[in-house]
C-alpha cells in the first residue's frame, strides 16, 4: 500500500510537471505494460495456467475503441463493449480447458489467438490487415487529449485500480482457492473447490483488465492494427513481463514492465530496433534463464531470499543460509 501510494504520487508529479514527450511516453508505456502484466498474472501467476494469447484481450479493448469511434459513438462505450467481448473469448477458451492439465489451456490460448488473428485479417468490418486510424478529437467526452498529461493520469488510475484489485484478490476467497488449486489441484478438488468455475472467473477478470488497457492504448496511439494489438509478438511481450518480475506476486508485473521498457529501449537504441530478431533473442534467453534457474522471477527470488533470512534469524543461525537472493 505504501509502495502504491509512492508510485501514484510520483506518477502525478510526472504528469503535471514533466513536458518531455519522450519521457512521458515511457511512463505511459510502463504503466500500460504493468497493467497488462498484472492481467496475465491473474490467470498465469495466481492460477498457474500459462496464457500465450493474452494480446487478443488487449485487442478486444483496442478494437472496441476503434469501432466505436469510427462509427461515431463514444469511446467510453468501448470499455464495457471490449470487456464483454474479452470475457466471452476468455470463457470460450477457458471453459473446455481450465479443468484439465495446464498444457491443454496453453494450447487453446495459442489456438484461439490464431483464430482471432486470422478472422480480423480477413473481415472488412474489422479493418483487415490495415487496421483503423482513429479520427482526431479532443476532450474528456472523446477520451482524447492534445498533451500526454491526462493519459498518464488515466493510466495511473487504471494501474492503481488493478493493483488494489490484486491486493483484494490475494485476500479473497478466489485468491485462496486459486493458490490452493495451483499448489495441489487434487487436494483442492477433494475439499470441494470447483476448479473450472473459479479459474474461469479469474480468467474472465484477467481478460477484462487487459481489455481496459486496450481501450486506453487505442485512445493514446489513435491507431489500431493486428501487429500492434493482437499478434503473437504482443502476447510474447506480455508473458515476458509476467515471467520476469515473478509470477503470482503483487509487484512482479510492475518490476517486469520496468525491465521490459528498459530492455526494449536498449535494444532499439543499441541494436537498431526490431525486425532483425535481436530483441527476440534477448527476450527468449531471459525467459529460458528464469525458467531454468529462478522460476519465480525477480520478486519471487527476493521474497524467497527474505523468507529464508527471516527463518534463519528465528533459528539463530543467520549466517548459515541467508542472503541467497
Amino acid at each position: 500500500m505504501i509502495a502504491l501510494g509512492a508510485i501514484v504520487a510520483a506518477g502525478l508529479v510526472t504528469a503535471l510537471s514533466v513536458r518531455d514527450a519522450v519521457a512521458l511516453d515511457l511512463v505511459f508505456t510502463l504503466l500500460l505494460y504493468a497493467v497488462l502484466g498484472q492481467s496475465w498474472n491473474w490467470i498465469s501467476g495466481y492460477a498457474g495456467n500459462i496464457s500465450f494469447g493474452h494480446a487478443i484481450f488487449f485487442g478486444c479493448g483496442a478494437y472496441a475503441s476503434a469501432l466505436m469511434v469510427t462509427h461515431g459513438l463514444s469511446p467510453w462505450l468501448a470499455i464495457p463493449a471490449g470487456a464483454v467481448a474479452a470475457a466471452a473469448l476468455a470463457i470460450v477458451t477457458g471453459f473446455p480447458t481450465l479443468a484439465l492439465r495446464g498444457h491443454y489451456f496453453s494450447i487453446a490460448t495459442i489456438a484461439v489467438a490464431a483464430i482471432v488473428d486470422a478472422l480480423v485479417r480477413t473481415q472488412p468490418w474489422l479493418g483487415r490487415a490495415t487496421g483503423f486510424e482513429l479520427p482526431i478529437a479532443s476532450g474528456w467526452a472523446a477520451l482524447q487529449f492534445a498533451d500526454k498529461g491526462p493519459y498518464i493520469v488515466l493510466a495511473l488510475v487504471l494501474f492503481t485500480a488493478v493493483q488494489i484489485a490484486t491486493i483484494a484478490l490475494e485476500r479473497s476467497r478466489l485468491g485462496y482457492y486459486l493458490r490452493a488449486l495451483r499448489a495441489n489441484h487434487a487436494a483442492a478438488a477433494a475439499v470441494g473447490i470447483d476448479e473450472r468455475s473459479w479459474k474461469l472467473l479469474a480468467f474472465a477478470w484477467s481478460a477484462v483488465i487487459a481489455s481496459c488497457a486496450g481501450v486506453l492504448y487505442a485512445q493514446y496511439t489513435l491507431f489500431v492494427d493486428p501487429p500492434s494489438t493482437i499478434a503473437l509478438g504482443v502476447s510474447i511481450d506480455i508473458a515476458l513481463i509476467g515471467v520476469v518480475g515473478g509470477i503470482g506476486t503483487l509487484w512482479g508485473p510492475a518490476v517486469g514492465a520496468l525491465v521490459y521498457v528498459v530492455l526494449a529501449k536498449g535494444v532499439a537504441l543499441e541494436l537498431g530496433g526490431t525486425g532483425k530478431g535481436y530483441d527476440l533473442v534477448i527476450y527468449g534467453a531471459i525467459i529460458c534463464v528464469i525458467a531454468a534457474l529462478r522460476p519465480h522471477g525477480i520478486v519471487g527470488a527476493i521474497v524467497d531470499g527474505l523468507r529464508r533470512r527471516r527463518g534463519a534469524l528465528e533459528l539463530g543461525a543467520a549466517s548459515a543460509t541467508g542472503g541467497a537472493a
Binding site: 530478431g277 525458467a291 531454468a292
Partner: peptide, 28 residues
C-alpha cells in the same frame, strides 16, 4: 532437465522461451 526440477508452469513457459530464442536467432 532443469525445468523439470521447477514448478509445472516452468516447463510450459521455459520451452516457450526456447521458441522465442530460436526464432530470434534464426531471424538474426
Amino acid at each position: 532437465r532443469r525445468l523439470l526440477a521447477g514448478p509445472p508452469e516452468a516447463t510450459v513457459f521455459g520451452t516457450f522461451g526456447l521458441l522465442v530464442l530460436m526464432q530470434g536467432l534464426a531471424q538474426a
